[in-house]
Amino acid sequence: MPVRVVDSCTPSQASGLNNGSTSPQACTLLSPGQTFSGTQNVSNLQKDEAWRVNVRIQGCDLDHGYLCGTMEALNVPMADTPVITFWEGEIVDTKNHTFYTGKWGATVDDDIKHWTKFPSFAPLMAQVEVDGGKTLDLSSYPFIFMRWKEQYFVNVGTDCGLTIAGFYYACFSCSDGSINGFYYDPNSSPFQKLELKSTNEGRLGYSFSSYELQ
């Protein structure tokens, strides 16, 4: 949810060709109720700024390449209260979704520029350039690639000074539950980085009881 303005290791081996089972591996750290905390860097040429961010997974359906959740920005300068948005995500599983976005104003070139920001994407690059990664088997890959699209503001109006016109390219580590992402919106600062770490709170199964998501 950026203001509108005018991965530590790489797998040693890429997954093989599609063997008919392409859904990413099940992971307890990517499940409903799990929470993540970190920052989003919204720096540009005029300022250097990072917001504290909390994310909660509300739903996850690996078979259909779908997940959803809420994102809370805590120290947004122009907002009196934390700003919460509801987002829906696409899991890149080569069955329901490929590495090519095909919407939200993103071109193939935009996709490649953003995915290559993740070191874990490097072993997949050659095949993605051929067919978008359709023939890759990601079922045992230790990283899950996703796109998150914010759908609406939960607790503030659209006049809050933020935009949700773009979307996030995101990469989830199955080993430690960390999430790195980059926001894409032609009208916002490029490559705004999202860095999140898994917290223990989500394992208790809590949710945002103060808000009704429709």
Rank of each mutant, 00 (worst) to 15 (best):
M1D: 12
V6D: 14
D7I: 13
D7A: 13
T10M: 14
S12D: 10
Q13C: 12
G16D: 10
Q25M: 10
C27S: 15
C27G: 04
T28R: 12
S31L: 07
Q34D: 04
N41H: 03
N41L: 02
A50N: 07
A50C: 07
V55P: 00
R56F: 03
I57G: 03
C60W: 00
Y66L: 14
L67C: 03
L67F: 15
N75R: 06
V76K: 11
P77L: 10
T85A: 15
G89P: 08
G89H: 08
N96W: 08
K103H: 06
K103T: 14
K103V: 05
G105I: 04
H114P: 00
T116G: 00
K117R: 15
A122I: 06
P123C: 04
K134A: 14
I144Y: 00
F145D: 06
M146H: 02
K149E: 14
Y152K: 06
Y152R: 10
F153N: 01
F153T: 05
F153P: 04
V154I: 13
G157Q: 07
C160F: 10
A165L: 04
G166M: 11
Y169R: 09
C171N: 15
F172V: 05
S173K: 05
S173F: 02
S175Q: 12
G181D: 09
N187T: 11
S188W: 10
S189H: 07
F191H: 13
F191N: 06
E201L: 13
F208Y: 11
F208R: 11
E212Q: 10
E212T: 14
